[in-house]
């Protein structure tokens, strides 16, 4: 049913697009028709696939490292209470910095290669993961903690057996936000300075007025982001099997 609805929405969108190009007689350098875009996708499939690879790589590594950083920060703030009052303001300041503005700086620091993109992604997504996970860790049912206390559990065992699993649904919502943001981070990084990637390709195509290629790249990017999001979502649902859903 969801699948069918998706197809219907996509088809009607393409239809409206094609019709508006025909009715308003828009030139291809302003808005290419879907047919032109798919033609561009077909002729440039090798180029796009090649450039996708580095974007995918950056996104996956950035997502992994950002999640790792975010969850470590959440665990540290839970465990070493004094750290929280020192760390939390820093985290919030890091989010007040616009990623777009510091991305050029990151390119200067980390180079034109993959590293600066990974750092950009990490900067963008460690916070949603850290704050969601930290929130979950703080909200452990106090009755569970009392029970563990009476059962003679150590702080570490209580954390491992009760607090972390109990916080996983929170962590999951943070990770979902992060997964949706990660490809954006990669594109920002590539726009600012890169020699590879879908963002680089789009910027080049734009400069050369190859608007059809730009749209083709955009479609691939959207497709990849969706695949990534739904894979992560599936995985999370598999591992957090006890979470209630309506």
């Amino acid at each position: 049913m969801i699948f069918l609805r998706g197809i219907i929405i996509t088809l009607s969108f393409l239809l409206v697009w094609q019709l508006s190009v025909i009715i308003f007689q828009l030139p291809a350098y302003i808005l290419p028709s879907p047919i032109q875009v798919f033609a561009a996708l077909y002729t440039n499939v090798n180029l796009i696939a090649q450039e996708s690879l580095s974007t995918i790589l950056e996104t996956l590594i950035g997502l992994f490292l950002g999640t790792l950083l975010g969850s470590s920060l959440a665990l540290m703030m839970t465990f070493f209470r004094p750290l929280k009052s020192w760390l939390l303001p820093l985290l919030i300041v890091s989010q007040a910095l616009p990623t777009f503005a510091i991305a050029p700086l990151l390119v200067i620091w980390f180079g034109y290669g993959i590293a600066s993109k990974i750092v950009t992604i990490m900067l963008m997504l460690f916070f949603p993961v850290a704050s969601a996970f930290f929130d979950g860790l703080r909200r452990t049912d106090s009755n569970w903690l009392d029970l563990a206390n009476i059962m003679g559990a150590s702080t570490w065992r209580t954390l491992w057996c009760i607090r972390i699993p109990a916080a996983l649904p929170h962590f999951a919502s943070g990770l979902r936000v992060a997964t949706a943001t990660a490809p954006i981070g990669a594109i920002i990084g590539e726009w600012v300075g890169a020699s590879h990637g879908l963002g680089f390709l789009m910027l080049n195509a734009n400069a050369r007025m190859q608007i059809d290629l730009m749209f083709a790249t955009l479609i691939v990017l959207v497709f990849l982001s969706l695949v990534l999001y739904f894979s992560i979502d599936k995985l999370l649902k598999y591992f957090i099997y006890w979470q209630k859903e309506n």
Binding site: D141, N143, D146, I150, G152, P165
Partner: peptide, 16 residues
Amino acid sequence: THRISYLAQTDLLLPW
């Protein structure tokens, strides 16, 4: 210490 067990109003079962 360590000689008490406890049964609460809610079952406190861990859902996972």
